[in-house]
Design a protein around this nucleic acid. Structure first.
Lengths: 278, 278
DNA sequence: TCGAATTTGTGCGTATGTATC
DNA sequence: GGATACATACGCACAAATTCG
């Protein structure tokens, strides 16, 4: 193995001449923070301030090296940090760009309305309101409940359930995944056994048709990093993407009749809840 | 500068011998994905499977280099990816460890109860239920409403508001930040003008005392990367931390009487909403 | 108590593949 | 095709914190 010999690496010149006892010049990474953090903070600030607008191009790595007098490593780590925050995305051969995010607002209260505006799905309504054109792919199958689903439906593990997987698209881009489970014991043999293609759409109207009066639902909201599978399905960047996960359960007289996992790109959705006091 | 001469970098040996036409051997980064992604996926899987339990130590960088036959750069990027996902955290001089996260469940419905269990704050109740001991720091001041707050309170920008900043601690660790605004026009001169230290705690009981009957509230939930300031205040890792943000507004007969920004570490909180249908 | 070994964090330079312009 | 630019990858050096004999 060829020995390169000792290299004159970092000379003892202070990395940050601007920090001189002033406790916190920048917002937080003040004193003499690592170079890549200071550069990332600088770029982040320019993005937030609207300089470097959405869709705009960041300085290239070579420019960053020159402007901040740092090595490629530092420039890479600074940009990588912004990627992991979901602020920017790299396009190989082209540059690094500020991500554009149009927020879709999901109104939980409106979703629950019984017999409201007709045949439109709640998702399509939210998407249209945000100026998107919505569509949907779905696929249903009977299977046995696993432990998690069984607990949420208050049935025994192994009991048959109807499982339906959805993928919702807005302007052709996937923006929502969801999987729902219903006990076959409840819907089996009825006209609404299959959630899609039947005489009604949506859990509440369908259950109405078989005399099951859904009167409340519970949603558990969590945020977590997107799994690789979700990154693929939602066309998210591998790095730093987060999702909002809703575990929703519809109840009729306290008895669960449907439960679903709903996954959103965390940076594209607002969830709105309107609740009564008392 | 000493020239190192041409280095024998990547030899033409295929990086991934396990992928042979089989489209997707592993879960997603299948074909012949970059080495750092495959290593990260491998470690992620071992973490999820419970091998490498919470609090457990990952292989050191040296071990990763040996085991996967890669350079330090690749090992660093793989670990860095897991850090940005919030799965692990590094301790300099010691190692990289699987993060332990105890979730706190916040029940929005319970929070809204009027005159319920007495003097305990909703936060303290949630924390106690999760086995934490809760406490709180706060600070109030009058100031002029900025545009954002004015819109949310349906008042004019510049009108006086009472601003209160909270920091909630569970077991001594900060787990929730919140800032609330109330129009001074509503509470000024009354016994409940100052949210803390008055004859009642909580928006609903306090408003009751001055004859304002709060009857509903709206919460807007979003997820986004934590700002450096929030990382500091909540003691989160700089890298990859996300927060849940709730914009909550209390209403009395349709009129906003209080609005607040509430920030949680995204990986430590579940938000639960229970809503009626119709 | 102290020092040596270990380990992460930060940083330098370079090389190659590949996509875009 | 050529220039540009990102993505991936190799190797090394030093600082800072921890661990352990």
């Amino acid at each position: 193995m060829p020995d390169t010999g000792p290299k004159p690496t970092s000379d003892p010149m202070p990395t940050d001449p601007s920090s001189k006892g002033a406790m916190r010049a920048g917002p937080v990474p003040g004193r003499s923070a690592p170079a890549y953090l200071r550069i990332a903070a600088d770029l982040r600030e320019r993005i937030m301030a609207g300089d470097l607008p959405p869709g705009g191009k960041l300085p290239t790595e070579a420019e960053l090296r020159r402007r901040y007098a740092v090595s490629s490593t530092v420039a890479k780590w600074a940009v990588s940090l912004l990627k992991s925050e979901g602020l920017v995305e790299g396009r190989r051969g082209s540059g690094v760009y500020v991500r554009v995010v149009r927020r879709i607002t999901r109104h939980a209260a409106v979703r629950s309305a019984r017999g409201g505006s007709g045949s439109a799905s709640p998702f399509a309504r939210d998407a249209t309101r945000a100026g998107h054109s919505g569509s949907c792919e779905h696929e249903s199958a009977r299977e046995a409940a696993d432990t998690r689903v069984a607990v949420r439906l208050a049935i025994e593990p192994g009991e048959p359930v109807m499982r339906t997987a959805y993928r919702f698209l807005a302007d052709g881009e996937p923006v929502q995944l969801s999987t729902s489970w219903e006990p076959v014991a409840l819907t089996g043999g009825t006209p609404v056994e299959w959630p899609e293609g039947g005489p009604a759409v949506g859990v509440v109207p369908r259950m109405d048709l078989i005399g099951v009066r859904v009167d409340e639902f519970v949603e558990r909201v969590t945020a977590r990093p997107a799994s690789p599978r979700e990154c693929q399905a939602l066309v998210l960047p591998q790095r730093g993407a987060h999702v909002l996960l809703i575990e929703r359960t519809y109840l009729a007289a306290g008895r669960p009749v449907e439960t679903a996992d709903i996954v959103f790109p965390g940076d594209r959705y607002d969830l709105v809840y309107r609740l009564p006091v008392d």
